[in-house]
Design a protein around this nucleic acid. Structure first.
Length: 574
RNA sequence: GGACCUGUGGUGCAGCUCGGAGUGCACGCCGGCCUGUCAAGCCGGAGGUCGCGGGUUCAAAUCCCGUCAGGUCCGCCA
């Protein structure tokens, strides 16, 4: 039907007889005998010269046959890939007429997302969506290449799995053959892939759809896609090397450049320096501990266990209203308060003074000590939070992002491995430790004895991959011995009966020869969004859902008919 | 479960604080003119449940209450 794609024609093609197919992007009419028609396909647009264009309205589907020729002197369009040529002596065939589209696809108007989603099939024609979908495909392709090169074998795991009421809320599917029983759609193929290790697969991977019935966000959809992998007879560094290789291959496929070595720091270091377990390393403003300087301060509030500071370079010009809102923000984040200091020149060369509500309560030595400790200079803004170590760090970590985070798509790609996560993160209302990662995570062997005595201090053999402040994914070495697994379940407050009911088949498998193994999973939607410079994963998903979980195009979710409900043994009560 | 922002011809906005006739801008659409444009240009035209419901008022896009939808965030996401 066609000989060429629209966006590929160049000066070197001059003289060729070609046919292109696509959509009418735009037309420019000059009276009876001359009109220009821009025909668009996924590769771009090409200008076709026709006598009359009445029959070809925007978004009509057309086939144009003609001769490629150089445009007349002075009429080339350098902003177009095909700007040096045009199609002349055209035969125009309308393959399908179209109603005027609900919005224009010229990339200039910012169209409301709800409208775009309702007419997603039109929206997908835009250069932006075409680019994002193809970028995503090349990421998938690169990931597969890397995994195959590393000896991983692609295995499909069930979508209809058994309910495991741990972690994220599950989507469930009623069983027609066993009324009252349900399948669960997998939050991740975690257990299946571990069983594949017991099954001697050695190296498993899958580009897996995961489903979680939790509230949606800019970086979270009900269903999302992970590169999921697991390997036997490996340690932490092996797993990280596999993932690093795959991610680098994907980034290179998109950017043309192999990314530099990934940073690596411990979880404790990430919290202390950036106030986050997913630090954005594209900029500085690291947190400084100034507790020592203020230990004997007249200000009781600053004699806390831990006083932290960040410096906002050039922030001394920040107005009172803005500072007040920062104080409110800090309180909303859980800080007792926020002390700000505008750094101004003092008397004498190089001397500094502070303009701060608490300035007069601090000695000269304390004021200069704080400035020296965090390296502040005249014109900067210093923010102090006092309280418990982790909370103070996290509050300042959030303010750091609020004040200075670079826009998505700028500042390059700063990958970082965060290692040595704690095994448990806090306790629930009954005082039981909560698994930070998942309950199959191997405790650090050095900390095994703390499982029963000080569980919150136990480090895990687990690690996260972070890119520009987004958590891409996480992984761990798994427990492969039933006795250790039982101790962890016990620390989690799960009794033998409960464990048996939920994970009996997994513990059973571990009795039949489970190799040491570990793995990882990371979100492809997030990786692709960051590589595409999008701040929302919906922009890299062909048919995403809104924040309330609806699809404006299909109307999903929708009701079931009485007959279908009866077949499933389901009665709607609310 | 909660906080905040948004909702006005097909699209994007302004109008809302201080109530006074659906007022305005840009794009698109329809028709006319136009032989080198390229986000073409010029002229004309059509197109409205101001998200929805209620209240206040002589009078509501505008003020108040409720509700729905979209978005950002908190909770949630082992």
């Amino acid at each position: 039907m066609r000989t060429s794609y629209c966006g590929t024609l160049r000066a070197a093609d001059a003289g060729r007889e070609v046919s292109v197919c696509g959509w009418v992007a735009r037309r420019r009419e000059h009276g009876e005998h001359l009109a220009f028609l821009d025909v668009r396909d996924h590769t771009g647009v090409v200008q076709c010269v026709v006598a009359r264009a009445d029959a070809a309205r925007p978004e009509h589907v057309v086939k144009v046959s003609g001769t490629v020729r150089l445009r007349p002197e002075g009429t080339a369009n350098p902003s177009l890939s095909t700007g040096e040529v045009e199609l002349a002596d055209c035969k125009l065939e309308v393959l399908n007429a179209a109603e005027p589209p609900p919005f224009v696809l010229d990339g200039h108007a910012e169209v409301d997302e709800a409208v775009r989603l309702k007419y997603r099939y039109v929206d997908l024609r835009s250069a932006r969506m075409q680019r994002n979908l193809r970028l995503r495909a090349s990421v998938n392709s690169a990931l597969r290449r890397a995994m195959e090169r590393l000896g991983f074998v692609e295995i499909e795991t069930p979508l209809l799995w058994t309910p495991t009421p741990e972690g994220a809320r599950e989507f469930v599917v009623p069983s027609r053959l066993q009324h009252g029983s349900f399948y669960a759609l997998p939050q991740s193929p975690q257990i299946a892939k571990q069983l594949s290790m017991v099954g001697g697969v050695d190296r498993y991977y899958q580009i897996a759809r995961c489903l979680r019935d939790e509230d949606l966000r800019a970086d979270r959809q009900f269903e999302f896609t992970q590169l999921d992998l697991e390997a036997s007879f490996v340690g932490e560094t092996d797993v990280r090397a596999f993932v690093t290789e795959a991610v680098k291959e994907a980034a290179e496929a998109v950017t043309g450049q192999r990314p530099p070595e990934f940073d690596q720091m411990t979880w404790a270091e990430a919290i202390a320096r950036y106030g986050s377990d997913k630090p954005d390393l594209r900029f500085g403003m690291e947190i400084t501990d100034v507790s020592g300087v203020l230990r004997a301060s007249e200000l009781k509030a600053l004699r806390a266990a831990s006083v932290k500071a960040i410096v906002h370079p050039g922030g001394a010009s920040t107005g009172r209203a803005r500072l007040d809102s920062l104080v409110e923000r800090a309180k909303a984040l859980g800080a007792a308060g926020l002390v700000w200091m505008r750094v101004v020149p003092g008397d004498g060369p190089g001397a500094l003074e502070v303009d701060s509500p608490v300035g007069k309560y601090l000695s000269h030595g304390e004021r200069s000590g704080v400035l020296a400790a965090c390296g502040a200079a005249a014109g900067d803004l210093v923010l102090l939070v006092a309280g418990e170590h982790r909370r103070s760090c996290e509050v300042l970590g959030q303010l750091r992002l609020d004040l200075a985070r670079p826009a998505v798509g700028t500042g390059g790609l700063r990958f970082a491995w965060i290692v040595d996560f704690p095994l448990f993160d806090g306790v629930d209302e009954l005082g039981r430790p909560q698994a930070a990662h998942h309950p199959f995570t191997m405790p650090n062997p050095e900390d095994l004895e703390l499982l029963e005595t000080d569980p919150l201090a136990v480090r895990a053999l687990s690690y996260d991959l972070v890119l520009n402040g987004w958590e891409l994914g996480s992984g761990s070495i798994r427990i492969h011995r039933a006795d250790v697994q039982r101790r962890v379940f016990s620390a989690l407050g799960m009794g033998d009966d409960e464990v048996e009911a939920r994970f009996g088949f997994l513990l059973g498998a571990f009795r039949y020869g489970a190799p040491p193994h570990g793995g990882f999973a990371f979100g492809i939607d997030r990786l692709v969004a960051l590589l595409a410079g999008e701040e929302n994963i919906r922009e890299v998903i062909a048919f995403p859902k809104t924040q309330s979980g609806a699809d404006p195009m299909t109307g999903a979710p929708g009701p079931l008919g009485a007959r279908q409900l009866a077949e499933l043994g389901i009665k709607i009560v609310g």
